[in-house]
Every structure is written in C-alpha cells, then in structure tokens.
Amino acid sequence: MDYAISDAPAARTPLSRTADNGLKIVVVGGFGVGKTTLVRSVSDIRPLSTEETMTQAGRGVDDLGGVAGKTSTTVAFDFGRISLDRRTVLYLFGAPGQERFWFLWDRLFAGTLGAVVLVDARRLADSWYAIDRLEHHGTPFIVARNDFGGPRHSPEALRDALDLDPRVPLVDCDARSRASSKNVLITLVEHLQALASARETAS
C-alpha cells in the first residue's frame, strides 16, 4: 500500500465508553465567514475534516470504478464535537453554503437538530442561497452575524437584506470567542424549544 493510515486518533480525547447518542448541528455559510473558527471555539477536539463524494443523481458513492469524475462531486466539510453528558455527544458540522453542496444535504444532514447560518455583513449575498435552502428543507435555523469590523447595519437593515422571517432569531457573534460561539448555539436550541412548544400548543 502506498499510503499511510493514521491509526491512532492521535492525542484526541476519545468519547466515553457510555456514549450512545450522536446529535447534529450544522453551521453553514460562505467561504471565510468563520465556520471552522466557530466550531473550533466550542469543540472538545481540534476540528477534523472529511468529505463525501456523490453524483448529482444522489445515490450512494456512484460508480467510482467507472469513468473517473463522470458527474461525481466532492464536498468537504469539517466538524468538531461537544460531549454533553455521559451518553450524548453533539457534533458540529461546518458546511459550505454553495449551490453544489445542497444536493448532499438530505443524505448528510438529515436528522440535524437545526442550523446556524453564519453571515459576514460585508458579503450578505453569500448567505442568501443557504437561507433559501434551509427554508425549503424545513430545517430550523438562526442567523449569526460574525463581526469582522467595518460599518454595522442595524438588525432591521440586516433582516431586510436577508429577507428574514421575523420569527428567525438574529444574533451577533465573534466566532473566535468561546463564550460568544456558545451563545450562538444556545440561541439556536432556545429557538428549537420555542418551535417545540408552539407545536405543542397547536396540537
């Protein structure tokens, strides 16, 4: 074999023997918006990266032995994790927001609790597509504005520019800060709780 397998997950804190329930939250946004930074800020482990290869037809890994690169697309994403208690571990995925990624959403991120759309106020258009797709998929989400300095739009102006449903929370964050990134996740879960109780009342 002409390649090496890094056998030991070197120096990475392993999960507890009792861990038996994995949960998912996805952080989505344009390139350079701070997804990996946010994941790193709250993760128990240094972010790792991997990839999924699929064809646009969206079946399994299609026909890798056939004509190389036929219509297969590779999407790279990174992730970290937080052990919440003895049994529960929350995985945070940083995923690209570009169009070519979304055909993978159902397969990769089905069962996601919710999503954080990370936006850079200087490049709002980068997040339009992601917001569109999340709405379409019915995945609950919040929007977090990552602070890169520069002029600040009012929350109203930002909501306007993103055409954001008034019920979707919008928070400011600094992805480099653990406290701030933690607050983003808490805001998302509180939003999910609000959705859950709205559903209770409705039924």
Binding site: Y3, I5, S6, D7, P9, P14, L15, S16, R17, A19, D20, G22, L48, S49, T50, E51, E52, T53, M54, G60, V61, T74, F79, R81, V89, Y91, L108
Partner: peptide, 19 residues
C-alpha cells in the same frame, strides 16, 4: 475500541464517508 463516530473514522482514514 471506544465509541467513535462514522465521520471521525472517515477523517482519520482520510476516506470519503461513503467508502
């Protein structure tokens, strides 16, 4: 030997998740 998520296995093996 201790519980490890599919995605961590993929990252460590440097293989796509599907494989």
């Amino acid at each position: 030997r201790l519980p490890t998520a599919v995605v961590e296995i993929a990252a460590d093996l440097r293989l796509p998740v599907g494989i």
